[in-house]
């Protein structure tokens, strides 16, 4: 039997990690047809959202007050990472309790990781060196006005410029998509 090969684990890059979402594209139509579930989305509210969206699909009222059915026959519920479990249990619930037809698809979604090398903020350093007895009621603008800087030799910091303090990396996250079909009348 073939053993499954695991994808190599990504190396941790130095710096603070700032997570960015996947690049979903904007479509006005999609707003009422796709539901994105997060890890902290409450289960019941997700169920209500799904039912409301399905209601909207079927109860499209035309100009003359006649109910018409659009071409769309299902809505999608998507969750990735931590939310997968929630999405799946939502699927089971919709299928078993609410008697909807539910399809499950798996996929992977690319996201961006940003690693920021934090330079020690000079602001904090300044605060630490400030003495307790400073009369701050008048000190600041004077200090600002007399702000004298010693310039470093420009040849020294030429390398400083190219230094990359922000690193970006793409990462794939597994995701699951439910298709919840509207009930045919």
């Amino acid at each position: 039997m073939k053993t499954k090969q695991k994808a190599p684990k990504l190396e941790r890059i130095e710096g603070r990690l700032v997570k960015h979402g996947s690049a979903r594209s904007f479509s006005y139509q999609e707003i009422n047809r796709a539901l994105y579930i997060r890890g902290d989305t409450p289960f019941t509210s997700a169920v209500k959202h799904v039912e409301k969206m399905l209601d909207k699909l079927s109860a499209k009222t035309g100009k003359r007050g006649v109910e018409s059915f659009g071409n769309t026959k299902f809505i999608t519920v998507i969750g990735m990472g931590k939310a997968i479990e929630k999405v799946l249990s939502l699927g089971v619930f919709l299928k078993a309790e609410k008697l909807y037809r539910v399809d499950v698809l798996t996929k992977s979604v690319g996201v961006l990781d940003e690693f920021r090398k934090e330079t020690k903020s000079s602001r904090i350093i300044n605060h630490e060196t400030q003495t307790e007895s400073l009369n701050t009621f008048s000190d600041t603008p004077e200090r600002a006005g007399e702000h004298i800087v010693e310039l470093a030799d420009s040849s020294d910091d030429s390398g400083d410029d190219s230094e990359d303090d922000i690193t970006m990396r793409k990462r794939n996250v597994s995701a699951v998509e439910l298709r919840v079909w509207r009930k045919m009348v």
Partner: peptide, 11 residues
């Protein structure tokens, strides 16, 4: 990138 919906995607 003009169709990106979550502006958070872009640093």
């Amino acid at each position: 990138i003009q169709q990106v919906r979550d502006l958070d995607t872009i640093p």
